[in-house]
Nucleic acid binder design. Structure first.
Lengths: 213, 213
DNA sequence: CAAAGAACATACTACCCAGTATGTTGTCAA
DNA sequence: TTGACAACATACTGGGTAGTATGTTCTTTG
């Protein structure tokens, strides 16, 4: 698998990654200082630079960590037998749920892709980000292949797959920008939101009838 | 109109705004230095600080300028008589086209909203951004009211308007992230892309039949 | 138990950058 | 013509920040 997880982070490293994810989400990459992350950890820079060679490597670590979590969500369903449209319903639904449940990490992944599109700063930083974005593209390829197959099977209906998959993904990802988790909220509430978003995308793709989730 | 254009920028100020928009789009707000903007202008900081009191004020200026352009696009159609669904088709189409034709400004507006959601830095910066985001919300309200009305008229079909309008907007806005203008490309190509995106959103909203654009 | 290294903290440096203070040039009105 | 002001450029400062160099403590291993 392209650039997939090479190392499982130990406990201390994982704490750093999560704290960094919080900071990157709240202020964005360049507005976040390494000291900010350390402060949130109740530690100092020394700890972070002991585990990561640079700020950009830290960001890459969060990106990787986040993509792993996102991949995990759809993994059980991505090879389901049967019509492609049913497979799409499953992975679209778990994906959208994961966007809300792991909103912080999802936002960092998003910013990583944005950074890549803008053209990251230094050359070697670029190489790292390139690999990660390929990893992320292999993810969206899963969706692309699924909807194209579903179209071939007569369940979906659209023109350009490139444009359509982008529209679909934006809709599915949208909650990372506006969803605010409430304290003590049950999973059913998140499911209800996901259901409406997936319904929107399902119809947008040309799906017929109701979808049962 | 809430926080609408109070001043029309003179030529020199407009040049600064456009250069700033380019920089903010390429590197993001905090990664862009005032010197970067000046360099792109072939000028120095002095020129910028002569027209804007601070970097955040410069950003606010670009935001306002961008929102004005976006409002302009739908202005001729927002009060069209007839069924709401037809009005929606028009404004959705011109909106999506504007996203591509004014991609740079649209991206800055997007980042402004993101900054606001994150909670902008200083208090007085917050006040300015609050006003601008209200301006921008009055824009999305137009869409919200339109789709709700169209639902009442039986042309659309969805559950929660808040969730649906977000999904719809994300789909319509998506090209600001992936559309790359080709040199010497004709408007018809942009129209074709916009048509597919609007079709996706139209179906997503529960619209029936084909839409003629 | 000693020594070596892991896992940090502390202290420091060089640089970038927002903002300011001040100089310079052109224009326009009286 | 002159003075006043607009529209910049130049020069400088203070604070923040990535990265480094060097302790310090604790754990592991022979």
């Amino acid at each position: 698998m392209l650039g997939a997880r090479d190392v499982v982070p130990d406990s201390s490293t994982a704490d750093i990654l999560l704290a960094a994810a919080d900071c990157f989400m709240e202020r964005g990459y360049s507005a976040t200082s390494v000291d900010d992350v350390a402060r949130r950890l109740g530690a100092t820079k020394g700890r972070i630079y002991h585990h990561f060679p640079s700020k950009s490597a830290l960001f890459a670590g969060v990106f990787q960590f986040g993509m792993d979590r996102i991949f995990d969500a759809i993994e059980p369903y991505r090879n389901l037998p049967g019509p492609a449209v049913d497979r799409w319903k499953r992975i679209a639904f778990v994906h959208t749920n994961r966007m809300m449940k792991s909103k912080t990490l999802a936002r960092v992944v998003w910013e990583g892709v944005e950074m890549h599109l803008r053209g990251a700063t230094t050359p070697e930083q670029r190489v790292v980000l390139d690999g990660l974005v390929k990893y992320r593209n292999s993810y969206s390829d899963i969706f692309r292949e699924t909807i194209v197959q579903a179209r071939d099977e007569g369940d979906f209906n659209f023109e350009d797959p490139a444009i359509t998959v982008q529209s679909m993904f934006m809709a599915l990802n949208s909650p990372i920008f506006w969803y605010v988790p409430r304290p003590g909220e049950d999973d059913e509430h998140v499911h209800a939101i996901a259901r409406q978003i997936v319904t929107f995308a399902y119809r947008g793709l040309g799906g017929k009838g109701e979808l049962d989730l």
